[in-house]
Design a protein around this nucleic acid. Structure first.
Length: 424
DNA sequence: TCTGGGGTCCTAGGACCC
DNA sequence: TCTGGGGTCCTAGGACCC
């Protein structure tokens, strides 16, 4: 309590930087990474940001800019990003006793214990240099007494090159000076809607928000925003969570490469997502009791008739067996499917999780657990993770027409032997 | 023609109970 | 016509994050 110190480490333009890492020829070239199906821009190199291309824009809207500026496009290569991320994170874990991996490209470090033994700015510079040297990814670092202020410090580290991308924001006077320059919408936890409401009340900067009355904010907004106000004032409300909390839900959903009109194809897609969700569930070492399936048409094209169907079911007993889950998903699917629509997306969700061995089986229905379920699922996961091949259920189909579009995929430089980069 | 995916937390309102 | 007070649990929806 009292004197926490957090560092927020954030990789610059992470996905775009990962792609550039293995393509030195692209060093100063504009690069974007696209979402699944090559739909929207999800990461931009600094050259692309400078061109004013916004995050999340559909690729078809910027065809001209791509052509004109020679922007290089990549499909998302998640395996590559995850691998480089874990390399960055292991370095951070060597440098601090406790690290919270907040997302694929961000982590909070707990510097509470070391703060009085080292110079924080120097410490930050050292961490940055180590990541740069060992992984080749550039990071920005913000250091402050609360997570929200550390985020703000990180924001400043990126915005002002003179900082060398490391900012120590422990001093309250510096906090106030910076907050006066930051738009309230750039504060962590303040999204578009709340920004609008705040500005209507005359709160325009982070400093305005810090100086607002917490009780009023709670009444007119929420306890969440009240916490933000406290955090901006150096009162730490958000703890560092070094142990990843177990998931409460698992979602697998995808937009299709092309619209689906065939029932059998849509059914295969649902089965495929269900199998993936079951794998994730076993990875979490949990059993799920509630299964949900949804299908829907596109939401952007208004000329096609819209339909969105979703249904969930509570299983008699929690399970992690792909066969049980597929069975449930199929029943739900047949109840929500309607012929005659052009489907754009489908997905499944698992919720209501239990640990193995803690669930009290229904006395009257008894335990229907399949024989050797654990063994079969174990072998299934093992084969699929070995890289030797893949085993799956027939209901998923073998040559989906609905597979994702990934026309600009980079090689798996770090995760497949055949695709290792070669230095000549 | 073409617009991502996967999470969390909070709140309001309804159902139900005593 | 007028019709209490308090609690729990669940769900849907909204807001946010990366």
């Amino acid at each position: 309590m009292g004197h926490s110190v957090f560092a927020l480490v954030d990789c610059n333009n992470f996905y775009a930087s990962c792609e550039k890492l293995f393509r030195p020829d692209l060093r100063c070239k504009p690069v974007v990474v696209l979402s699944n199906n090559d739909g929207c821009v999800v990461a931009r190199s600094k050259e692309v940001k400078a061109l004013g291309i916004k995050m999340g824009v559909p690729i078809f809207q910027i065809r001209d800019e791509i052509e004109q500026h020679g922007i290089v496009c990549f499909s998302s290569n998640y395996a590559l990003y995850a691998d480089l991320s874990s390399r960055v994170m292991s370095i951070l874990e060597e440098e601090a006793p406790r690290v919270e991996i907040y997302s694929i490209d961000e982590a909070f470090m707990d510097l509470t214990g070391v703060a009085h033994t080292v110079d924080l700015l120097e410490f930050g510079r050292k961490v940055k240099a180590r990541v740069d040297q060992h992984v080749g990814i550039t990071v920005g670092i913000g250091i402050a007494p609360t997570k929200t202020l550390a985020k703000l410090a990180n924001h400043a580290a990126k915005k002002y090159p003179a900082t060398g991308q490391v900012v120590d924001l422990m001093s309250p006077a510096r906090q106030r000076r910076l907050m006066a320059l930051v738009d309230v919408g750039d504060v962590w936890g303040v999204g578009r809607r709340i920004t609008e409401k705040l500005k209507a009340r005359g709160i325009h900067t982070a400093l305005n928000l810090a100086d607002a009355d917490p009780k009023t904010i709670r009444r007119e907004f929420s306890v969440v925003l009240e916490r933000t106000v406290q955090e901006l004032n150096g009162i730490s409300c958000l703890e560092l969570e070094a142990l990843a909390p177990t998931k409460k839900q698992i979602v697998c959903s995808r937009s299709f490469g092309q619209r689906i009109t065939e029932r059998s194809e849509l059914r295969e897609a649902v089965a495929k997502y269900m199998s993936r969700a079951a794998e994730k569930l076993r990875g979490e070492k949990r059993l799920a009791r509630v299964v949900q399936v949804f299908v829907r048409t596109g939401v952007f094209n208004s000329s096609d008739p819209h339909y969105s169907g979703s249904l969930s079911v509570e299983l008699p007993n929690p399970t992690d067996d792909t066969r049980d889950l597929l069975e449930a998903a199929d029943v739900l699917f047949s109840r929500i499917y309607k012929a005659g629509y052009r489907y754009a997306k489908a997905g499944v969700m698992l919720t209501d999780f239990y640990e193995h061995g803690t669930y009290q089986h229904d006395l009257f229905r008894g335990s229907f657990e399949r024989k050797q379920s654990k063994e079969l699922m174990g072998v299934l996961d093992q084969i699929n993770h070995s890289g030797l091949g893949s085993v799956f259920f027939a209901s998923q189909g073998t040559s989906p027409q609905w597979a994702m579009k990934r026309e600009h995929l980079s090689p798996a430089y770090t995760t497949r032997w055949e695709e290792l980069p070669v230095v000549r």
